[in-house]
Nucleic acid binder design. Structure first.
Length: 273
DNA sequence: CAGAATACCTGCGGGC
DNA sequence: TGCCCGCAGGTATTCT
């Protein structure tokens, strides 16, 4: 999926079209996403007005006058805004029709995504409540990482990808940030100094911000709300570059598997502590 | 308890 | 051309 920059790009792209708009109709063609879609979803959303769209981690939160609906894009999810009712394709699972005639269409081939409803405060929702801090917030600092990593043996790559610690750092950007910070992805977190963790936090923020600016990373599936690609893939230094030379030192980049996710790094630039 | 493995699902590219 | 394998941006749940 979409990692955080792709979700943020989607948010910015759709916000103006759906906020303050009343929902006229909801069409659900496939209910079996990561969790089955609430059988009452259509009636919950009928005539509801979207007040605001925000993002928490990789969840898109649509607050309405009746409650909040939530989209998660999983690995292959996408939200598009249509200005006319195009015939649905195979993986177009949800359409939300608005009073302004626009249609929000959710597409997701692998169906790891989610479409949820809560009438309560969305921040009390069990999936949202337990999330770690936002990576672009001031709370996310080297000091914070140092504090929560004392005596922990877990590999730094897994650690920064753990959404209970910090949200929104996915496989691509984790690899990129570790490379920029010269940290080997398998380094046990307890071995990293405050200085190194501070540098890592900085590179995570830079990578995420740059990816947002360039509209996210398109590898194969990801397209923004207008069906356009993101261009951060042009900036990738290690992800998808195994066997090619390191942009810093020329060493051939190595690929390994951490927690079943492929990881590319430079043996010369990223030393194991 | 921490940390690792598994599960969900479809599509695509590469090798034969 | 077609089949089989491995791999893909996530993350809750189950295991050791």
């Amino acid at each position: 999926m979409p990692e955080l920059p792709e979700v943020e790009t989607t948010l910015r792209g759709i916000k103006e079209y759906v906020e303050k708009q009343q929902i006229i109709k909801v069409v659900i063609r496939k209910r079996t996403l990561r969790w089955p879609i609430d059988l009452e979803m259509e009636s919950h959303l009928q005539n509801a007005t979207v007040l605001q769209v925000t993002r928490r981690a990789k969840y898109l939160l649509f607050s309405t006058d009746k409650g909040t609906f939530i989209f998660h894009l999983g690995m292959t999810g996408r939200i598009g805004i249509l200005n006319k009712p195009l015939p649905p394709k195979k993986h177009d699972h949800v359409d939300i029709l608005f009073a302004n005639k626009l249609i929000l269409r959710f597409t997701d081939a692998r169906r790891f995504g989610a479409f949820l409803w809560t009438a309560e405060n969305v921040y009390n929702h069990y999936l949202i409540k337990s999330l770690g801090i936002e990576p672009l917030s001031v709370q996310f600092s080297g000091r914070y990482l140092k504090k929560i990593s004392e005596n922990k043996n877990i590999a730094i790559k897994r650690f920064i990808m753990d959404s209970k610690k910090v949200v929104g750092v996915g496989n691509i950007y984790a690899a990129e940030a570790l490379f920029l910070a010269n940290i080997h992805p398998l380094t046990p977190v307890k071995n990293l100094s405050l200085t190194q963790l501070t540098k890592l936090v900085k590179t995570i923020k830079v990578v995420l911000k740059n990816a947002i600016i360039t509209g996210g990373t398109t590898l194969k599936d990801y397209l923004n709300h207008e069906g356009k690609k993101g261009y951060f893939y042009l900036h990738l230094k290690v992800y998808g570059r195994a066997g090619k030379p390191c942009v810093k030192c020329g060493h051939i980049l190595t690929k390994l598997c951490i927690a079943n996710r492929s990881t590319v790094y430079c043996k010369a630039c990223q030393t194991l502590l």
